Simulated scan of single mutants.
Amino acid sequence: MIGTRNGTLAVSGATLHYEVRGSGPLLLMIHGGGGDADKFQYVADNLADRYTVVTYDRRGHSRSSLFNQTENFRVKTHSDDAHRLLATLTDEPAYVFGSSSGAVIGLELSKRHPEQIRILIPHEPVLLQLLTGNELVQAKQFLESLKKNHQSEVLKLLSNSERDTSNSDQSKDAIPKRLLSNSTYFVEHEIPGIINYSLDIDTLKTAIKSSAMQVLPAGGIASREFFTYGCSVALAEQLGTNFVEFPGHHGGYNSELHKEFAERLHEVLR
Rank of each mutant, 00 (worst) to 15 (best):
G251L: 07
Q238A: 02
G24E: 15
I175W: 15
D169P: 11
G7M: 03
G230S: 10
H189T: 12
V54D: 12
P217S: 06
G106V: 10
S152R: 13
N68W: 02
I117W: 00
G98S: 04
L107C: 10
P125D: 11
V244I: 14
K177H: 14
K39S: 15
T132H: 02
I194A: 10
E71V: 04
Y197W: 10
L9V: 07
D173I: 14
Y42I: 05
T8R: 11
A222H: 09
F73W: 08
S210I: 00
F67S: 07
D81A: 03
T228N: 10
I201P: 10
N182W: 10
V96S: 06
Q116T: 14
S101G: 06
L66H: 03
E124V: 01
V233A: 09
A82N: 11
L179C: 02
M1W: 00
S99H: 12
I117M: 02
F227G: 01
K259D: 15
Q138I: 04
S159F: 08
T4H: 00
K76D: 10
G32T: 11
L89M: 09
P217G: 11
E71I: 09
S99K: 01
K39E: 15
L235D: 01
S168T: 12
T88E: 14
V96T: 09
Y229W: 15
G34D: 08
G251D: 08
Q141I: 05
D164N: 06
N167S: 14
G24M: 13
E19Y: 03
M213K: 06
L66R: 01
G106A: 09
G240A: 01
E153V: 11
S152P: 08
D36M: 03
C231T: 15
V126E: 04
Q116A: 14
G60I: 13
Q141M: 12
H31G: 05
I175Y: 15
F97N: 02
S152E: 15
P25L: 05
G98Q: 01
H61A: 14
T206Q: 13
S198E: 14
L127V: 13
T241H: 05
K140A: 00
V20Y: 02
T132A: 04
Q238F: 00
L47W: 02
E162C: 04
F73P: 07
A262T: 12
T165P: 01
K140Y: 02
